[in-house]
Amino acid sequence: MNRGFASLHPSPCFLYYVSLVILAMIIYHPLFLSLALCAQILLNIMQDGGKKLKESIKYFIFLGLLIFLINPIISHRGQTVLFYFFDNPVTLEAVIYGFVMMMSLLTILVAFISYNLVITPDKFMFLFSSIFPKTAFMCMMAMRFVPVLRKRSQDIALVQKTRGTDTSTGSFVQRIKNGMQIIIILITWSLEEAIITSRSMRARGYGITKDRTSYFDYKMTKRDWTVLGLIILSFGNLLYCWHCGIGYFQVYPEVSALTLDIDTGLFLAASLIYLAIPIVIEGAERLIWL
């Protein structure tokens, strides 16, 4: 996928997801969290028609409800007792805290789905390689070896089967032994192969130049800088609000009322600007091209 939000340089995209997860973890305002969740669901639908979201939505709802229900049972903090459950007080505060945690968790989980669509492993490695080039290179190689090793282990298993070494029959210990036999052959083979790979790397001049180039060459364009600036500004704005206590929602020891004064209104408007960034980018492209 290479359109909309994902067509930007990886760094503004990465920063957006990191900042979103941070905000979802520190701002407990129910309205903010609801807005964030709705925005993330909308973003997912715009990106791939909500296909990936549909696959895991049941599991997410189950997890969310679990927290929503467990918190009031475990935690007895708070002043407003609603009722007694097996002689344990269930407080309004604990219920609301459970709800807030559920919204926060759902926002993070849904954001991760969209993250996986936008920041593919190669983009992540591109970002990582500017700070830790050697480590990123090593991870990249290891990533490439995984499919090779899987294919290889199937080949070995097939050959071993003709010799009667089978992982699907026999006693438990026998099966573990047979499985490990395959892994040991795989290791011996692959380590030798690794040496051949590295000799060929050396023959092509690995280690001669200090600065390694990257296969992917993302360049920051004017558009990327604008979006990056916008994200930093609106994120900083929200952090500042949080620092000053605007949009602070107190749960313990006594839940505060949800009031809509000017401060909260401005705070919500600021959050809307922040949350709308990727949606506007996706939407604008749609308006132009579709």
């Binding site: 050697k134 090593m138 070896f145 090779v148 690794a194």
Partner: peptide, 10 residues
């Protein structure tokens, strides 16, 4: 380098 990567992949 390749050896460490291969061990991790294994």
């Amino acid at each position: 380098m390749v050896l460490i990567a291969m061990l991790s992949a294994l």
